[in-house]
Amino acid sequence: MSSALLYALAGVSLFTLGLYALIVHAHLLRKILAINVMGSGVFLVLVALGGRTTGAEPDPVPHAMVITGIVVAISATALALALVLRVQAATGRAELPEEPLE
């Protein structure tokens, strides 16, 4: 087991943690945080697996993909926050409606 694998496994844990919070929490801002944590987990897996090269240098292609991914994630976050503010202005609360889920 290499340390890159350790990081990849931590990425999987982050993804699962974010998915759990995304489903469980009702507040929309919390859901946005959860999606960002999920994204960070995916990035961690990508870059960690990109380190398994035969040479000393890691693969630069996943690095470039993750950099663009980080920028896309922040622009999606900004759009989602604007939508949450609209939801708050329209309904008076920034949460999903209560539903009986039992």
């Binding site: 240098e57 890691p58 993750v66 950099i67």
Partner: peptide
């Protein structure tokens, strides 16, 4: 940084 990705 630990993953050798200073750009990221």
């Amino acid at each position: 940084v630990r993953l050798d990705a200073p750009d990221v």
